[in-house]
Each structure stands twice: as C-alpha cells, then as structure tokens.
Design a binder for these strands. Sequence first.
DNA 1: ACTGTACCCTGTAGGC
DNA 2: TGCCTACAGGGTACAG
Length: 293
Amino acid sequence: MPELPEVETVRRGLAPVLVGSRVAKLDARRPDLRFPLPEQFARRVAGQKIVGLERRAKYLIARLSGGEDLVMHLGMTGRFSIIHDGHVDRPGEYIHETGPDPAHDHVVLHLSDGTQVVYNDPRRFGFMVMMPHELRGEHALFRKLGVEPLSDELTAQYLASRALGKKVNLKAFLMDQHVIAGLGNIYVSEALYQARLSPDRAASSLATARGAPTDKAVRLVAAIKDVLERAIAAGGSTLRDYRAADGQKGAFQERFSVYDREDTACRTGNCKGKIRRAVHSGRATFYCPRCQR
DNA sequence: ACTGTACCCTGTAGGC
DNA sequence: TGCCTACAGGGTACAG
C-alpha cells in the first residue's frame, strides 16, 4: 500500500513528534509482524533518544542515540497514529475512525513526554528490524536497493544502463526495488501513462544497442519524478487503509489518471480510449492502450 | 539469469 | 443475512 509518497508523508508527520524525543518504553504486543520483532526489542529501544527519522525506499528509519537504526516497513496496511495524553490529534479519525483497535495495534512507543506513537497493521505484512547504523548499507534489505527516484541518481542514463538487454516488461522492471527503490503498483501505472509507454513494452527499449538512453527513457524518468512529487504534495494516496500519522487521508487518489479507473475515459486530450486493466506478475496494471505504446 | 506462481495474513466488496 | 470468491498499496521463496 504505502509506496514512496505515502511513506514520505508518514515520515513528515512523525518527525516533529519523534525526532529529539526519548522513548520511555516500547510495548510490543505480539512477538512478530511479518517477521519476528527484534530480539530484546523493548530493552534495545527503551531509554534511547530518537536523533533522526529518515526514509530510504519504502523504509522508515529511526536513528537511535545508541547507534542502532530502527527500520520499519509498513507492508500493505501498516499505519502510525500519534496520541497525546490519551487523545488523538484528530479525534474521530484515529485508526478506523471509531477508536483504538487493540486487535491490530501491535507496537506502541511511549515517549517520555507521555505521547504515544502506535503502529497498527491488520495484515501484518509490515515489519521492524534493528541494525547498527554503520552497517545499514551492508544489510540484506539495503545492499541491493536501487536508486532513490527523487534523487539525482535517477537519470535516463542510469535507467538505460539497467534496462540494457532486459526482456522483462516495463511494469515489472519498474516494480523491481533493486532498480528504482520506492515505486509500487499505483505509481508505476501512473508514471507509465504519463510517459505514454505501454506496460508490456520490453525494458530494453529504454536503451540503444550501445546502452545510451532512448527518448522513452528520458520521458519515463521525467514522469516518475513528476508523479512522485505531485503525490507527495497531495499527501499520498488513500485507497482504503492508508493514513498519514495525523490520521489524514491522502488526496492524490483524486488525481489518478489510470489507477483504479478501469473502463473510464482516458483523460488525454482527444483520445477517445478507455482505461484498461491487465495483470502483470499477479498485480493489476491500469493503462490506456491508445496513448501508451 | 529470468519468469511465473505461491505464499505470508486479514478485511472487504461483490455475486449468488 | 450468509457463504463464497476475488482482490488489496508489499516482498520473498521457490520451481521451472
């Protein structure tokens, strides 16, 4: 669910509360999410000051004063809520808009000022791991991650070099976190539409035989950056579960060009086509067969 | 090396 | 109302 724009929105919502705060107590209400929670989890986090909150790909990373990083992934349905003195920032919007959700509130950070930060995740596809900050780049989760799409590392040249000779289709190519880190099912569909590229096109068409970027690669890089920037500005996309840390829904779903718009009219100028839904690698893809080639 | 599938787990929507 | 199926923003482990 949460792709890069959603995770970044969560990060921006949590940072003012977490960064500079001390964790008085960590309450893990079950031993595992997708994977087992860290060994000695409560002991390793309690008493630590949070000195930074970063994002890499779809990971949220709390840097702890003791030198470890707490790495958190929201999976499909993970969300954080901030509770001050027993009241949420936005009463009525806490979790399911009906109140706390004990069955799925899995991890609670109690800050020393009394604020609680609650991790809720019905499907438990999320996970939390800890590792020394210095070793993060060598960790299996991070070692092979692709470039950050909003950084200067994502260029048409980079994309071409990674796509050279690859027969895999563009949908799967862009979903691969080892190529570009942070795109997911929504934003891949949106970026391909904006770049006017078919999801079925071979990734190799982003590069010439010599590995230079084609105009398609140039268009795709621009589209990826633009879609992600607009989505972050809108606070991400809320289809059903996603909420920012303050409980607010995102607004970018109202700007989708293709995602979840099967059988509706393509919005491109004089295109009279209909948005189609297909399946690539088991995931839904939405696109306009007339505009995207 | 690449591809496709199954799977992890739960909730919800839609068809009947 | 109830039952069943399909599907959901993520990622990994396989088998072929």
